[in-house]
Computed example of a mutant assay.
Amino acid sequence: MSLIEVTGQDAAKLLQGQLTCNINDLSASQASITGFCNAKGRVISTLLVVKSPASFYLILPADLLDTVLKKLRMYVLRADAKLQDQTGSMHILGITGLTPEFDAPIDRFAVGQMPLTTIKLPDAPRHLVLGAPDQIDEFIGLLRSQYDFESGCLDEWRYQDISTALPWFDINQSEQHIPQMLGIDQLGGISFSKGCYTGQEIVARSHYLGKVKRALFIAECQPSASGLVNGCKVLDGISQQSMGCVLANAVWSGINRALVVLQIVDGLPKNLILDDDYRTPITIISDQ
């Protein structure tokens, strides 16, 4: 993940006009997932927005950092707002399994200080912790000295993201889906009452007219020799018709788990396969 800091008197106004969530609902104790859309309502990137006393932090996949910075800066114009890549000066630590003694936040996307900024991720005992590199190193040292904590790997963390339907994706899936197709509305990341933002007309029309034709699902398949590629088509195994695509995937402990965006208009077929060299069967284990 990478981190963008947005500062200036017009920072909130800038973000309110670009992101799907209601920036005015954020506080020192509540963050939000959100979508940054193009004019056609397609999500350029999903973001986690955290409010600090003097700025806003945007957490997003590192693969989309340059794209988001470039496109957001196009909307600054004369506003008193500045966007800076703070990935090098603010580190992001992921922790699984914090016990109650840590006094960490427990509600979805709630924010606490323990003593660093700590955000609760949904549907699992997982948190993100933000801090300067020396603060993060000190915090890790504390965990290891006083508690039974071990270092994990990025593949396992990504696997857990997918298992809880967090719709992170890379640049290959940028500007392909409207927010509802990624389940951002189910995670509380879309406001339908806050007013205009880029792509709002398409997002609102899909909501009020009920015309969302695709949805997000969690799926599993056997790891293939060639590896599963994000954006790979998912086919009806009988008709060979395209049903959607792979949004993101991760392999952990021999299991390939993926987020897939699939058509829902006529129901899902029972036999789904990947459009790869092996026509790998893929099984839906949960909707988002």
Rank of each mutant, 00 (worst) to 15 (best):
I4W: 02
I4Y: 00
E5A: 14
V6P: 00
D10V: 10
A12L: 10
K13T: 14
G17F: 13
L19T: 00
N22E: 11
N24I: 01
N24K: 06
L26N: 08
T34P: 06
A39L: 11
A39W: 07
I44A: 08
I44S: 07
S45I: 00
T46W: 09
T46H: 04
L47I: 10
V50M: 00
P53T: 05
P53S: 00
L58K: 01
D63Q: 00
D63S: 10
L64G: 02
T67Y: 11
V68D: 08
K71G: 02
L72I: 09
L77F: 13
D80E: 14
Q84K: 14
Q86R: 15
S89W: 00
M90E: 10
G94T: 14
P100Q: 07
F102V: 05
V111F: 00
T117P: 11
T118M: 09
T118R: 09
P122N: 02
P122R: 03
D123F: 12
P125E: 03
H127R: 10
L128W: 01
L128K: 06
P133A: 12
E138M: 14
S145V: 03
Y147T: 08
D148C: 10
E150R: 15
E156A: 15
Y159V: 01
I162V: 04
T164E: 13
T164Y: 04
I171K: 03
N172H: 08
Q173E: 03
H177Y: 09
Q180I: 13
I184G: 04
S191F: 08
F192D: 02
I202P: 09
H207A: 06
V212C: 08
A215E: 09
F217S: 13
V229S: 03
I238C: 12
S242C: 14
S242D: 15
G244D: 01
G244S: 06
L247G: 06
A250E: 07
V251C: 11
G254M: 04
N256G: 07
A258C: 09
V261H: 13
V261T: 07
L262P: 04
L268N: 05
K270G: 12
L272A: 06
I273W: 08
D275A: 13
I282G: 01
I282D: 10
T283I: 13
I284Y: 05
I284R: 04
S286G: 00
S286D: 14
